[in-house]
C-alpha cells in the first residue's frame, strides 16, 4: 500500500516545547556540544567509539524528554536509499574499504561480491553515523526555539564579524533554512498527493522505487522548487514591509547568558570528544 505521509516525518527543525534541562541550556552551549559530538561522529571509525556515541546521544535525547520513535521516523523516507547504500558498501566496496579502514581480512566471497572486515566496518559505521547525526541535529533543533538558535549562532559568529564576516546575515540564512525544512517537507507530501491525483504514475508502493526516473523527479521537484521560491518572495516582502534592516545596531529582547550547567555541558562534551578522537586508532 502506498504511503504519502512520509516527508511529514522529517523531524529536523521542528521545535517541541519542553522544560527539560536540555531545553533550558543556553543555545550557544547546545550548539557547541552538538558540534563537538558531530566531530566525534565524523572522525571515528571504531566500533567502541560509535557504541559510546550512540549511548550518549540516546541518553541526551532521553534527558531532553524527546520521543526517540518520533525522531527516528524522520529517516523513513530515506530507508530504501540507506539500505541500498549499506548493501553496496558491504559487498562492492570491499577492496577500497579494506585499505581505507583497518580490515583486509576477507570474511565472505562469492564471485565479485566480497565482504571484508573493512567493508563490514564501513557499513556498520555509516549506519551508526546516520543515526547519531539525526539524533544530534534533532536534539538541537527539537529542543531549541528557532529564535534562540539564531541568536546563538549569531553571537558565536560575532568575533568573526570584526574580520568582515556577516555574522547576523549568515545566522539568519541558517535559521531560515532550518525553520523551513518541516514546512517544505509537508509541502512535498502535498505535491506527491496532488500529482498522484492527476494521473502521475508514482509507484510509491515499492520502498525501493522512491523516485525512479528523471520524469518523476521533474513532476515532484519542480513544484517543490517553485513553491520554495514563492515562499521566498512572500518572506522578502514581509521582511521589507517590517523595515527589516539587518543586524547592525539591532537590539534583541533576549539576552543570552552562560550559566554553570552550560559550562559543565560544554566541558563534558569536550572531554568526551577529545578522548574518543585521541583513542580512535587504538580502540577496536
Amino acid at each position: 500500500m502506498e504511503s504519502f505521509e512520509v516527508f511529514r516525518h522529517v523531524t529536523i527543525g521542528q521545535y517541541l516545547p519542553g522544560e527539560s534541562l536540555v531545553h533550558r541550556l543556553d543555545p550557544r552551549a547546545k550548539i557547541t556540544v552538538v558540534l563537538l559530538l558531530i566531530a566525534a561522529v565524523t572522525f571515528s571509525t571504531s566500533y567502541t567509539a560509535h557504541l559510546a556515541l550512540l549511548a550518549l546521544t540516546l541518553g541526551l535525547i532521553a534527558l531532553a524528554n524527546l520521543p526517540v520513535r518520533y525522531i527516528v521516523s524522520g529517516v523513513k523516507p530515506a530507508l530504501p536509499f540507506i539500505l541500498l547504500l549499506a548493501l553496496m558498501q558491504l559487498f562492492v566496496y570491499g577492496e577500497a574499504a579494506a585499505s581505507a579502514v583497518r580490515g583486509t581480512a576477507v570474511l565472505w566471497q562469492w564471485g565479485v561480491l566480497r565482504v571484508t572486515a573493512g567493508s563490514l566496518r564501513l557499513t556498520l559505521v555509516s549506519l551508526a553515523r546516520l543515526l547519531e547525526l539525526l539524533l544530534l541535529v534533532s536534539l538541537l533543533t527539537n529542543a531549541t526555539p528557532t529564535t534562540s538558535l539564531t541568536y546563538g549562532i549569531e553571537s558565536m559568529l560575532r568575533p568573526f564579524a570584526r574580520l568582515g564576516l556577516p555574522a547576523h546575515e549568515l545566522s539568519l540564512i541558517g535559521t531560515i533554512a532550518l525553520r523551513f525544512v518541516p514546512v517544505l517537507g509537508e509541502q512535498f507530501e502535498t505535491i506527491l498527493k496532488a500529482q498522484a491525483s492527476r494521473g502521475a504514475n508514482l509507484r510509491l508502493g515499492g520502498r525501493l522505487q522512491f523516485i525512479r526516473s528523471a520524469q518523476q523527479m521533474v513532476v515532484l521537484l519542480v513544484p517543490l522548487f517553485l513553491n520554495a521560491l514563492l515562499r521566498a518572495e512572500d518572506l522578502i516582502l514581509a521582511m521589507e514591509a517590517r523595515c527589516y534592516g539587518g543586524g547592525r545596531g539591532r537590539s534583541h529582547y533576549v539576552r543570552l547568558r552562560l550559566r554553570a550547567p552550560d559550562y559543565v555541558a560544554m566541558a563534558l562534551a569536550l572531554v568526551f570528544t577529545a578522548a574518543v578522537l585521541a583513542a580512535r586508532n587504538a580502540l577496536p
Partner: peptide
C-alpha cells in the same frame, strides 16, 4: 475519481 487540490501551486510544473 479526480481530486483538485486547494493550491494550484502544488501541481503546476
Amino acid at each position: 475519481i479526480g481530486l483538485a487540490f486547494q493550491r494550484p501551486e502544488d501541481q503546476l510544473f
